[in-house]
Amino acid sequence: MFTLDSRLQQDTLWLGDYPLCRLLLMNDAQYPWFILVPRREDVSELFQLDIAEQAQLWQETTALAEVLKDCFAADKMNVATLGNVVSQLHMHVIVRRRDDVAWPAPVWGRHPAQAYTSEQLVAIKARLRTVLTGEFCFNES
């Protein structure tokens, strides 16, 4: 059974699910920072997914990055899977703009997180509803 790592659960907001991945929003309003987590048990490395799941992860990641780039007027999309702190396989998809507080450095640990307000969260979800279509299923809770 799929269980989300406690650190991801603590630091993110659940937006919904693609066929393979859970889509999370890092609870830091300084950056549109999304995380895709394959809903598979005990997977910490890309090669632990079968070939079809690897392709599905890449398809979901690139589709998400493409819509986020347009939706949030990104100057650059940062896409990475690291897992040095959280070993559960997860893909970061981060919208970067030249005017963000950490540009051009990585966002990790640069500035203390600023949690989304309820109004900001409603706005970001509404914005995503206009661009995430197809097989994406929003978390309604």
Rank of each mutant, 00 (worst) to 15 (best):
M1C: 07
L4M: 14
L8E: 07
L8H: 07
L8M: 10
Q9R: 12
Q10N: 14
T12K: 00
G16A: 01
D17Q: 14
D17C: 13
Y18T: 05
P19N: 06
P19K: 03
L20G: 04
R22D: 07
R22P: 00
L23R: 03
L23K: 02
L24T: 04
L25Y: 03
L25Q: 03
A29D: 08
Q30F: 00
Q30D: 10
Q30K: 08
P32G: 06
P32H: 03
F34V: 04
F34D: 02
I35P: 00
I35A: 05
I35S: 01
L36R: 01
V37M: 06
P38Y: 07
P38H: 07
R39T: 09
E41R: 09
E41A: 14
D42C: 04
D42R: 10
D42T: 04
V43N: 06
S44V: 11
S44T: 14
Q48A: 12
L49S: 10
D50N: 15
I51C: 08
I51G: 05
I51F: 08
A52D: 15
A55Y: 09
Q59H: 14
E60M: 05
T61D: 03
T61K: 01
T61Y: 01
T61E: 03
T62F: 09
A63R: 10
L64F: 04
L68I: 08
D70S: 14
F72P: 02
F72C: 08
F72S: 08
N78L: 00
N78H: 06
V79F: 00
T81I: 08
V85D: 12
S87E: 13
Q88V: 11
L89T: 05
H90R: 09
H90N: 11
M91R: 08
H92V: 08
V93A: 05
I94Y: 00
R96W: 00
R98G: 12
R98D: 13
D99S: 15
D100C: 09
V107D: 01
G109V: 03
R110F: 11
A113E: 07
Q114I: 13
T117I: 09
S118D: 14
Q120H: 11
L121F: 15
L121M: 13
V122I: 12
K125C: 13
K125L: 07
A126W: 01
A126N: 15
R127V: 05
R127K: 15
L128I: 09
L128E: 04
T130L: 14
L132T: 04
L132C: 11
G134L: 07
E135D: 15
F136I: 06
F136R: 02
C137A: 13
N139S: 07
E140R: 04
S141E: 11
S141V: 08
